[in-house]
Design a protein around this nucleic acid. Structure first.
Lengths: 181, 181
DNA sequence: CGACACATGTAACACGTTACATGATTTG
DNA sequence: CAAATCATGTAACGTGTTACATGTGTCG
């Protein structure tokens, strides 16, 4: 859904065509979130089907196929940008799932998983800090900072997990914790 | 993918059946990430197809259909828990996409979007802090803290966005508005 | 010429969501 | 008895991924 709305939002700025929209989308996200070109064409078809975009006049173009946003589409973008993205349940996250599932096991397992995760995350964070020498364009910098901020938050959370798992009243072998075999 | 592995990981602890696995998965994630039961049955079928799970002996059960993990499945879980989840590109996030796309527009637009987002996030954070009175089980607490940590990180990032957008050399009407060709 | 960027599309597949259908058991 | 919970499944749909097919233009 987010890619679709991102594309539509770009169309709200100016008419464009598939290949260009892909490039623009990736530029806006600092080159971090690439998309398959094919998907853009699919999205454009669906946007048309939903009355949010339509083929635009192809002035003096080559083999490009320009698209424009419709009034309805403009309204959708307007709403999207105005209303904040806040779900009660945050998007599912693989790392959280992994750690939380592991925490349900024996403490040693949980602690090992937490430690692996933390080590890897820490390495990532170091790389992230080393990169972005203040250079680059706005999008790249913002994306880099977002990633950094999340990594730091996740690291702090992992520490917290470790603390709680270690100090918890050790629910040792209840119900289905002990694995047979 | 994460749900599938979460389910498989639960199966690695003990044989179980669809309905139970759904409940366990949700319990592990503090009740925050619910899944449709139907999906669990689909996942189980696919796991069997891939040789990671298999129907288990139905000892003295009613109409329940127990599943067990296979050796191969156990290896997969082992790998999943051991290798950290660290992708160079973090999962696509709607809020980030929205803000980054908006930042490509005129500063007023970007600032408005940032502000809406921040207000909403702040409210969420307050609720999150008010909840979890230290009570509840481990999973619930950890999940609540993860959510809180992410919200705080996102809020800090939004401030950073605002600062950079405000202080940036105002690329006022360029970007992709012109570029004919 | 050959490689690469530009440009558009299709097909197959995986994952997730919502909704629906069906039935047994438990409990107020 | 009626309602809720337990339990299993299917169908339709939306979104995203990978891979493939095809063709033009440019540049070394």
């Amino acid at each position: 859904m987010s890619v679709r709305l991102g594309i539509l939002s770009l169309l709200a700025e100016a008419p464009s065509h598939g290949y260009q929209l892909k490039a623009d989308f990736e530029a806006r996200t600092g080159g971090v979130w690439t998309i398959n070109v094919g998907q853009v064409y699919t999205i454009l078809d669906r946007l048309q089907k939903d009355g949010l975009a339509e083929p635009a006049d192809r002035d003096a173009d080559g083999d490009r196929r320009p698209w424009a946003i419709t009034e309805q589409g403009r309204a959708v973008v307007e709403r999207w940008l105005t209303e904040a993205t806040v779900s009660p349940a945050p998007p599912r996250d693989e790392m959280l799932i992994k750690v939380l599932v592991a925490v349900g096991r024996a403490p040693e397992v949980a602690l090992a998983v937490i430690d692996h995760q933390r080590t890897a995350l820490f390495r990532l964070l170091q790389e992230a800090r080393r990169a972005t020498p203040g250079s680059a364009d706005l999008a790249e910098r913002l994306m880099a900072e977002a990633v950094r901020a999340r990594h730091e938050a996740d690291l702090a959370w992992l520490d917290r997990c470790e603390a709680l798992v270690t100090s918890s009243p050790t629910p040792p072998s209840d119900s289905r914790t002990e694995d047979p075999r």
